[in-house]
Each structure stands twice: as C-alpha cells, then as structure tokens.
Design a binder for these strands. Structure first.
Lengths: 232, 232
DNA sequence: CGAAAGATTGATTGCTCTCAACTTTAGTGG
DNA sequence: CCACTAAAGTTGAGAGCAATCAATCTTTCG
C-alpha cells in the first residue's frame, strides 16, 4: 500500500510515463506535468467529486481504485468507469469547467494526481497527441455506452453479467473483489438478479464466489464472441 | 429543397458561420475551411458511411437529415443522432482514422460538407476553441448515452417514448415526420410497443398521428421534469 | 393494380423486478 | 473475548411489463 505522504517528482513522473495519453509525450513534457501535478491521498469510500460540481482539476489515478458513476433521480447508480493506476477520471471537465452528471468515489485507499484544470488544458493544447488520445478515449466510451444500451434491450441479465465479468477479468485478472451490488450497478440490474446470475455461473463451475470475492475459473465460458466490447 | 449542384464558397461559409463549434471561430478561419470543404449531394436513404469503415472525412450536414446509428449483431438498430443543418456526423473519426461502430445514412435528400480528415485535424489543432467544442459535445453525448442506459433500466416504454417525443419536439417542432419503427429505434424498444405507447398518447389527446407523421398537441404533457436530458 | 411499407390489435409467454424473510460474515465496542 | 450490529449474500413467491408471434388493414407508389 502506498503511503499517505505527498508523492515526489520521480514517482509522479513514473505515473505519467505509464499513463493513458501521456506515455507517448516527450520526456520534457512529462517532466513539466510532474511539476504541476499535486498528489492527494483519499481513504476508502471517499468522495472525490460529486455531480453538479464544477470541475477544478484534472484527475489521474496514481494508485488505488476509483468508481465513476451517475445516479438517477430514482436512486439507481450506473457505474461508468472503474479507474486504476494511470487512468484519468474526467476528460471533459477540464475543458468545459462545467458540471456533469458524474460522481467519483474511491473503492480502496487511493492516491490521485491533480492538475489545475486551466494548466491542464493549456498543456493539452500544446500537445496534439494528448488531444487525440482524449478524443479517442471519449469515442471508445461512447461506443461502450451505446453497446450497453443495446445490451439492455436485447440481452438478458445472465448475458449482461457474463459480459461484465469477462470485462472485469480482462482488467483485473481472475480475482474480482466486488459485491453483488457493485456488479449489478455495472450490469444495469438489481442486486437480487445479479446474485441469481452469479449463482448459475457458480453451479456451472465457471466462477467461485465468496464474500466480496469472485474467482473466474473458466473465463472461456463467458468470453464474448461478438465485437461490441465494453470498457470499464 | 437545395440543388444537387456543388455549393459555392459563400454558401459553404454561411454553413460554417452557423454551425456547431465553428461559428465562434475568426472569420478568416471559417473562410479557410470553406475553401477546403467539398459539398456532396446524397439522395434519400443513401449510406454515407458504414460501420467498420475507416474514416476519411469530417462530415458536416449542410442541408437535410442524417441518421447516425449502431446496429447490434442481432440486428437491432439504435439511433444515436439525427443530424440537421450545422451538425457534424463524426467528431472522433477524423482524429483516429479508425472505424467505429457507427453508420450514417440520409433520411431525406441531403447535402454534406466534407473535409479531408487530416486537413480537418490540422485545422482543429490550430483552434483550441474548436477542440473544446468537440470535447464538450462528446461529453454531452456521453451523458446522454448514460442517461439512456438508466432509462432502459428504470423507465417503462411509455416514459421512454415520451422523452423521445419531447426531445424531438424541441429539435424539430410540433410536426414530426417519423415512423413508429424509427421512434422505436430511438426509444430502445420494438415497433409494436412504440405503436402501443403512441396509441395511449393519442387517446389522451397529447398527440395526433398519421402515416409518417406525428403532431405534438400538448407538449407540456410529456415535458420532462427531471434533469438528465437526452440529445438526439 | 399489385406490391411493399407502414400501422394496428390481440394473445401469449417469460423474464426480471419487487417484496419479504432469513442466513452468514465481518467488524466493533464494551 | 464476546455480544451486537451492519453489510452482504441467498432464496422464494408473485406480479407486471414488454417482447414475440400472428393476423389484418391501410396507404403509397411505380
């Protein structure tokens, strides 16, 4: 586990050298960013930003796990992104400054790198590659969201949950530390339905389950043949 | 109806002076674009680009109506954007050049302005305002898509169709020239269910219906109180 | 006038949400 | 260290919505 102390220049540089959109930038540019970025420690279940909240910083996960989600007026939460080391939380906010629907909170102890939004956009405009990476990532997210809409329409809960598990498997490996409720918020269903779907997969020997713990035993059984990938 | 002849400089400039993301650019910049843009005429129901097709141009609607949609392997189509004069069809493609899931086809006779993708991105990188507009628009689309996922989960067909009708009303006015199938593809349901929902609204005196024709009589009856807007 | 597109209605089925009750596990304060 | 409590997991029963299948009718257009 990383310490709560502020991160030094070298450690910050290491993140940027390894992170989405930044790794391909010239070293000088990454140094520049490392200087202007502050690290901030969050304990588990801490709120990073809420919906309707104007954007002040660009956030990059340095260590830990962050859930980015939107919540409907009816109270249903849709998890949109589970961000790990090297992933940004808000690609749009820095450019507009405006509030969106999204909220971000930590699912583990987490350290973020923060860059003042104006400083970030000023930097980005000088680096077309970064802009391209941002737009490309937004495009992927859009494709992913649209695929999820189609899934809601034509796939049943079992299939949606299978897709979610496979996506998580690719991102986190065979051991998934999530509750049934968290999976439900990814699959767009209820906790009960997600438990029932997990139950079937357990009986088929595809997964093993424990409290806050799912092990993928036979990933090939839930592999998605179709294109339409989902990113989480 | 616009002619099939190529558009002259002045008419192209007029579009850019009136279009999303471009209207705030300096006049010289808009002139420059008008020179590099070609106009192209499409008849009704023509395919502009298909899925899995690499991107060669940036497209802007000069006149007409274009549907941008994705189709699942099961054959269900989800309409993602109904683009009218001044709206772009593909904000991401020009930057990545890669194929996405989307397809675009005309719903009316349509004229598009095409800009070679490299020329467009080169131009965009020189105009931060345009970049900001693009990223902002992608953010809105993402919020819209996520709202639609939540709607699929917690709203019934009647409510979803009401929201679609109200959104179309704001964009096109009281007279909507769409089939029940097209509405179904917007609301994420089947043609039959969309007809049944329309039927209820007709009986309540909210709309009047005809072949390929819906008139919104009492828009306030379907006005959405909640935030979570949808853009189409 | 024939054919295709669009609109409509009915009947049936099944999925999944909801509500409810209960068990198990982990964590915490006395 | 134990009792208590909250979180998480589990299962069952019931109800309702909407997809599906099927049949029919109307309108438009070549």
């Amino acid at each position: 586990m990383e310490s709560k102390a502020p991160w030094g220049f070298e450690k910050k540089l290491e993140i940027f050298s390894d992170a989405f959109g930044f790794k391909d930038l010239p070293k000088d540019a990454r140094r520049e960013l490392s200087v202007s970025a502050d690290s901030r420690y969050y304990k588990k279940s801490a709120v990073i930003f809420g919906p309707e909240e104007p954007c002040r910083y660009f956030y990059l996960v340095a260590d830990g796990l962050v859930r980015v989600s939107i919540t409907s007026t009816a109270g249903n939460r849709l998890t949109y992104l589970l961000a790990v080391r090297g992933e940004p939380l808000n690609l749009v906010g820095p450019f507009t400054g405006e509030a969106r629907l999204m909220a971000a909170e930590t699912l583990k102890e987490t350290t973020l790198l923060l860059i003042d939004r104006e400083a970030f956009t000023h930097f980005a405009f000088q680096h077309p590659r970064l802009i391209t990476a941002i737009i490309s990532k937004l495009g992927e997210s859009l494709d992913s969201a649209n695929s999820r809409i189609l899934d809601m329409q034509e796939k049943n809960v079992d299939q949606r949950l299978g897709r979610i598990l496979f996506t998580l498997y690719k991102k986190f490996g065979t051991t998934l530390k999530f509750t049934s409720t968290e999976l439900a918020e990814l699959a767009g269903t209820t906790t009960e339905s997600s438990i029932r779907a997990l139950s079937k997969l357990r009986q088929m020997g595809v997964i093993e389950t424990g409290r806050r713990n799912i092990t993928i035993v036979r990933p090939e059984a839930i592999e998605q043949s179709e294109g339409n990938a989902i990113w989480i």
